[in-house]
């Protein structure tokens, strides 16, 4: 439950945490009591405290992915009470605070559940599939050192702003975790749209979208459900409009490539 009180009273939570020793283990929930928590503590700091107790007892700490702890690196990836990144809209797990919960709440913490993101251990999943999609076409081919003057390419502010909206993706994978089809179309749509909105991205536009979508399919990500759980879970509130743009770009590129000699695509 979302409580969002500004209370300064310390609280306790009952945690039900997914523990899994390795990729081959079946895994199970284990209950922990997290006591005397300052409401201004972040959710990850609470896990630090729980882990500190476990380590002191000689038990293995709960493995969870984290790094910058300010919502930009995309490493953290908890599913809290069934929601990727927890109860709040538009923030990452690391920006979820204990004050979002009420004293005595039971909180379920799980890893992402999606076939292309296998669990490594406990709450840590392997998201290398996103790197692979990016390698299939998520770039503009420009040799380092060969660029023309930056202001030689004027870009309307509206286009630049929209490209930035798309580029804000942190690659955390919450969109995939939130989708019952484990679709990566918000991630791919954002990257494809960023480049499609900019003049620099035009020469490789068709090739990019076709290759990235093919790689996405090959890696086992599903199709869009058109229910937009992805945008709802996205810590950067990336709009599902970019999925529509992706579909449009993909259709155009498919048609164009059908009428072109194979070698040119």
């Amino acid at each position: 439950m979302v409580a969002d009180t500004s209370s300064t009273q310390n609280i306790s939570l009952n945690l039900r945490v997914w523990r899994q020793a390795g990729p081959e283990d079946t895994g199970r929930f284990v209950d922990y009591k997290a006591e005397n928590l300052n409401p201004n503590m972040s959710f990850l700091e609470m896990l630090d405290v729980v882990n500190d107790d476990l380590e002191r007892k000689g038990e293995e700490p709960i493995a969870f992915a984290h790094d910058c702890r300010e919502g930009i690196c995309g490493t953290c990836s908890l599913v809290i009470d069934g929601k990727p990144h927890g109860p709040h809209h538009g923030i990452a797990s690391c920006q979820t605070y204990v004050r979002s919960f009420k004293d005595g709440d039971t909180v379920v913490v799980e890893p992402y559940r999606a076939k292309p993101f296998p669990v490594q251990r406990d709450l840590v999943t392997d998201r290398a599939a996103f790197d692979e999609i990016q390698q299939a076409g998520g770039f503009i081919s420009i040799r380092t050192g060969a660029a023309i003057d930056a202001n030689a390419i004027p870009i309307p502010k509206e286009d630049a702003d929209l490209a930035m909206d798309a580029a804000a993706c942190i690659g955390c994978g919450a969109c995939v975790a939130a989708c019952k089809n484990a679709s990566a179309m918000l991630f791919v749509g954002a990257k494809v749209s960023q480049y499609a909105l900019l003049p620099q991205g035009q020469p490789e536009r068709d090739k990019r979208v076709l290759n990235m979508v093919a790689k996405m399919d090959e890696l086992g990500f599903g199709n869009c459900t058109n229910q937009y759980e992805c945008s709802a879970a996205c810590p950067k509130t990336i709009s599902h409009d970019f999925i529509a743009k992706l579909n449009k770009d993909y259709l155009k590129a498919s048609v164009r490539s059908a009428f072109k000699p194979k070698s040119s695509v």
């Binding site: 503009i140 660029a147 930056a150 630049a160």
Partner: peptide, 12 residues
């Protein structure tokens, strides 16, 4: 120059 060519969406 290099970053703009890569498609970095700087403020305009």
């Amino acid at each position: 120059d290099q970053c703009v060519a890569q498609g970095v969406p700087f403020a305009r």
